[in-house]
Nucleic acid binder design. Structure first.
Length: 271
DNA sequence: ACTGGCTCCTGAGGGC
DNA sequence: TGCCCTCAGGAGCCAG
């Protein structure tokens, strides 16, 4: 499921039900995630949830004893708010019952996700400390991207998917942003001119903003915390459209593998 | 410092 | 109906 827009939508959906609420019970049904669910997670019973924020595709949940949950949805994870009486579905790995009578469920068939209990400042955590700028922040500028591209001869698509360069650009939105910038995914990053990098900076921001405003992209299993789908899929210009005509010029959309990931582009609109 | 390849895991879909 | 193969929205880690 999740790219940055999907994580953001999920967070906005669950936030009102969690903030200021006390944790009554934590059930771990399957601890084998990307890294094992922290044994100390159970100790969080009785703590209050102070707030939630996002960094890259990580959700960070701040607890009343100044520890945090570091949550990642991986490739197939979701978080939903439900009534505790709802039967467990296959791959419902965590159930966190709250003082407001609701329950947070973590569901993740492929188990590439993560649900860790950490102490200390999350910003200094190993997985967060080396990350690049948020694509929607003022820190994400053409200058930053130009600097990052200078030494990179890899295809620009794989470079914008590198979280050290900019966070939150996953496989769908990498192809989409390059289409909107008119740049072929195979182009070595270091070869791009300043104006083209500036265009790409704007395209990345716009694609992610638009996806958030349309509720994210539902491909297979992304649903909102209330179970409804996202509508960005119908706005996709190239992703998943190999063999279909470009919506702008009618040229057949091409597909190739770049850095082990499927990549889509229009040979006419993108040079 | 950069690059490409590998890895974790389950499920869906296509071909036969 | 079943079996086998390929592919999937992430991303850390490793060797070269």
């Amino acid at each position: 499921m999740p790219e940055l827009p999907e994580v953001e939508i999920t967070l906005r959906g669950i936030q009102p039900h969690l903030t200021g609420i006390t944790i009554r019970e934590i059930v771990v049904r399957e601890a084998r995630l990307r890294e094992p669910v922290s044994p100390t997670l159970a100790d969080c019973t009785g703590l209050r949830i102070l707030g939630l924020k996002r960094r890259a595709k990580y959700s960070i949940c701040q607890l009343s004893d100044h520890s945090h949950w570091l949550i990642h949805l991986g490739m197939s994870g979701n978080l939903r708010i439900i009534k505790p009486s709802e039967p467990f579905k296959k791959h419902d790995h965590l159930a966190i019952t709250l003082s407001n009578g609701l329950q947070l469920r973590f569901h993740d068939p492929r188990r590439f996700g993560m649900f860790s209990h950490i102490t200390g400042d999350p910003a200094n955590h190993k997985l967060l400390s080396g990350l690049g700028p948020e694509p929607l922040s003022p820190e994400f500028t053409p200058e930053v991207l130009t600097q990052a591209f200078r030494t990179r001869n890899s295809p620009v698509k794989t470079v914008i998917m590198d979280a050290k360069v900019v966070v939150g650009v996953g496989n769908i939105y990498a192809s989409e942003a390059l289409f909107h910038a008119g740049i072929r995914p195979q182009t070595p990053a270091a070869k791009l001119s300043k104006p083209r990098i500036a265009k790409l900076t704007g395209a990345i921001r716009t694609v992610i903003e638009n996806s958030i405003s349309q509720g994210g992209t539902t491909l297979r299993d992304f649903l909102h915390s209330d179970g409804s789908p996202g509508y960005f899929r119908q706005s996709l210009s190239v992703y998943g459209r190999a063999g279909e005509p470009c919506r702008v010029c009618g040229t057949i959309i091409k597909q190739a593998v770049l850095g082990q990931r499927s990549t889509f582009w229009c040979p006419t609109c993108q040079r």
